Simulated scan of single mutants.
Amino acid sequence: MTIGKSAAIQPPTARTDYRRHTRHPMKAAIIINPFSGKRQAPLVRRLAERIAADLGVALSVKTISGPRHGVELTRAAVSDGAERVLCAGGDGSLNAVATGLLGTTVPLGIVPMGSGNGYSRSLGIPQGAEDALRVALTGKPHPMDVGFLNDQPFLGTAGIGFDARVARRFDRTKGRGMIGYLRIILEEIASARTIHVQVTANGQSTETDLLMLVFCNSREFGNGARISPASCPDDGVAELKLVSKPPLRSLPLAFLYLYTNRADRLRYIHSIPTTEAIVAQDGTIAHLDGEPVPIGHRVRFRLALHQLLVVVP
């Protein structure tokens, strides 16, 4: 199965009861980020426990207490015999849990609870907690590609330049959600400086000034902003987006196209299908699935095929 426009994902029509289909209850863990969403964590926990009991799943609940704690909790859950690990949080939490699952055959279930939820939207995961939990516990695991910036993994997008600076500000702000995200973009875009890059991909080099450079394994940043409409996280190829700075008068059209699945039509965006890119640049930060990280002046993006099992509808 290919995740994308050619294969529409539909909600499951039948419920799996693990009491009837296995000799023992499936053992699962859910890792919840209590800082994600609008105080949804207690509700998600209650729903998860009720649905797991209804399905005959032995569920343990773990709570993230700080940055990258999700990696440790995931590895501990796998060591304890979890046959499926669910993440209830945003794209950053999802990145941490996925990192803990790399190198294993334990599937990842997704319960979107963040501000953007870009990766889950790209997979057609329900955005409501109850429907997402049922998919995460009964859906089919599917092998997905994973991106790397140097040695750091990401699921959806990673970038340098303007989007990384927005991610850093968004990470530091108390106002989350689409409104807060758009406010930061509008405040930053008028005075945004370009970055000078030298990009080598597919045996060819390009040197130019860009607003941002984005390596896309899935189609959107989050909140419905689709920077790479054709990207699918299981198709074996990434889209490298070289984004020039548009004039201010063109920004309304650029935003319209970004939020209506037409970003590929913008003349300010140049796309390079590839699995690897070496970038020399003058910035100092990047983002991985929306989480800001420090970087040096030379970075390597690459795509590793079928590295992670993800539960889809």
Rank of each mutant, 00 (worst) to 15 (best):
residue 289 D to Q: 06
residue 267 R to A: 09
residue 234 D to G: 02
residue 178 M to H: 06
residue 242 L to G: 07
residue 202 N to Q: 00
residue 223 N to W: 04
residue 206 T to K: 09
residue 207 E to M: 09
residue 186 L to D: 00
residue 176 R to W: 03
residue 291 E to Q: 05
residue 202 N to P: 13
residue 275 T to K: 09
residue 273 P to V: 00
residue 241 K to Y: 00
residue 175 G to M: 12
residue 207 E to L: 02
residue 253 L to I: 11
residue 255 F to T: 03
residue 244 S to A: 15
residue 272 I to D: 01
residue 189 I to V: 15
residue 246 P to D: 06
residue 188 E to K: 11
residue 218 S to Q: 03
residue 197 V to L: 06
residue 246 P to I: 06
residue 250 S to M: 05
residue 263 A to D: 06
residue 204 Q to N: 13
residue 171 D to P: 01
residue 228 S to H: 07
residue 223 N to I: 04
residue 190 A to P: 00
residue 229 P to S: 05
residue 294 P to D: 12
residue 223 N to Q: 09
residue 178 M to N: 03
residue 197 V to W: 06
residue 191 S to L: 04
residue 254 A to Q: 13
residue 279 V to Y: 07
residue 252 P to N: 03
residue 291 E to P: 02
residue 228 S to L: 02
residue 173 T to H: 09
residue 276 E to I: 05
residue 185 I to H: 02
residue 270 H to V: 12
residue 197 V to P: 05
residue 280 A to D: 14
residue 174 K to F: 06
residue 230 A to K: 12
residue 216 C to S: 15
residue 186 L to N: 14
residue 215 F to E: 02
residue 174 K to P: 09
residue 247 P to S: 01
residue 170 F to L: 07
residue 203 G to S: 08
residue 224 G to C: 00
residue 281 Q to F: 06
residue 286 A to E: 04
residue 288 L to G: 09
residue 176 R to S: 10
residue 221 F to R: 12
residue 211 L to A: 13
residue 275 T to N: 12
residue 272 I to N: 02
residue 181 Y to Q: 09
residue 195 I to D: 10
residue 278 I to K: 13
residue 290 G to L: 10
residue 219 R to F: 03
residue 276 E to L: 02
residue 270 H to I: 08
residue 178 M to Y: 05
residue 208 T to V: 04
residue 188 E to M: 15
residue 282 D to F: 02
residue 182 L to E: 09
residue 216 C to H: 05
residue 236 G to K: 06
residue 262 R to H: 02
residue 278 I to F: 08
residue 251 L to M: 15
residue 294 P to H: 03
residue 287 H to I: 00
residue 220 E to D: 04
residue 195 I to R: 14
residue 198 Q to R: 13
residue 259 Y to C: 04
residue 228 S to A: 13
residue 287 H to N: 13
residue 220 E to L: 01
residue 245 K to E: 01
residue 174 K to L: 12
residue 244 S to K: 13
residue 203 G to H: 12
residue 180 G to E: 01
residue 216 C to E: 04
residue 173 T to G: 03
residue 281 Q to P: 00
residue 261 N to F: 08
residue 247 P to V: 07
residue 222 G to K: 07
residue 276 E to G: 05
residue 291 E to I: 01
residue 193 R to L: 12
residue 224 G to L: 10
residue 229 P to M: 10
